[in-house]
Amino acid sequence: MSSQISTQSAAAADRDLTFLVIERHRELSAHYDAALSVSAKLDGPEFHAAEEISSQRNHALAEHANVLIRSTPTTIAGVIALTRYVGSLREWELPDDDAWYRVFLGGLADAIDGIAMAQRLARDGD
């Protein structure tokens, strides 16, 4: 049964771009974290150069965090993955806007509603 579940998850990932958005956010988080680790070990001009790189990577992460919370999954697997992923993030990986969760939850509700409607239409059409 677990091979069937992983096959279904892989098929869902093929249809739902949310998985790509999550993976990109993971990459940007890792790049920013690595840059911070480097700059923390430096002094003087090297620190300032490394800090500039950290700042650029933080900006990229912040921009993508806004993409992440505005993602609209198209599958239940995408809804679950996005919910679990966002729930696991540290504060610095989330948007700076204190009300980001309103956008996120509204988007999830819309996604679930859309998935349910598509399932009803498919069921009624059979």
Score class of each variant (00 low, 15 high):
R90F: 11
S37Q: 11
A10G: 07
A11K: 07
F47R: 12
N66C: 06
E51D: 14
L105M: 14
G106I: 04
R90S: 15
H59D: 11
N66H: 10
A109M: 12
L68W: 02
E27A: 04
L28E: 00
S55V: 01
R120D: 14
L28D: 02
T74Q: 08
Q119E: 15
R123L: 14
T83Q: 10
V21N: 00
R24V: 02
A81E: 04
D124V: 06
A62D: 10
E23R: 04
A11W: 06
A77F: 12
A40G: 11
P45N: 02
D14V: 08
A77R: 09
A35I: 03
L121E: 14
N58A: 09
T74R: 07
S71Q: 01
S71L: 02
S37M: 09
I80Y: 10
G107I: 02
W100S: 02
E27H: 08
R102Y: 12
A50H: 02
P73V: 00
A111Q: 03
H31M: 09
S55P: 06
Q119L: 15
R15M: 08
L17N: 11
D113C: 13
L17G: 12
Q8I: 05
R102V: 15
D16V: 00
L121D: 13
T74G: 08
P73Y: 00
S71K: 00
I53E: 09
L28V: 00
T74S: 08
F19A: 04
G87D: 11
R15N: 05
L17Y: 08
A116H: 13
Y32S: 06
I80C: 04
A50M: 02
E91F: 15
H64M: 01
P95R: 00
V86N: 04
P73T: 00
G125V: 10
R70E: 13
R120F: 12
L42I: 01
G125D: 14
A77I: 01
A40D: 15
T74I: 06
R90Q: 15
P73C: 00
R70F: 04
L121K: 13
H59N: 11
N58K: 09
V103H: 10
R120S: 13
H31D: 12
G106C: 07
L36V: 08
N58Q: 12
S37D: 13
A118I: 03
H48G: 05
F104T: 03
R90Y: 10
G125Q: 13
D43N: 10
G78P: 05
L28C: 01
A77G: 09
I69K: 02
V86D: 07
A40Q: 11
L89D: 06
W92L: 09
D96E: 15
S6F: 05
N66R: 10
R57C: 05
T18I: 03
P95V: 03
I5D: 10
I69S: 02
R24H: 03
H25I: 00
A35D: 05
R26Q: 05
P73G: 00
T72C: 10
G106D: 15
S54H: 02
A34G: 08
Q119S: 13
D113L: 14
A30K: 05
I112P: 12
I80H: 06
W100T: 04
I5H: 10
I69P: 08
L36R: 11
G114T: 03
A109Q: 14
A65P: 09
R123A: 15
E23Q: 07
D126I: 12
N58Y: 10
D97C: 09
A40Y: 05
G125N: 15
A118K: 06
Q56K: 06
N58P: 07
T72Y: 03
E93M: 09
L42D: 04
I22H: 00
A99C: 12
D110S: 12
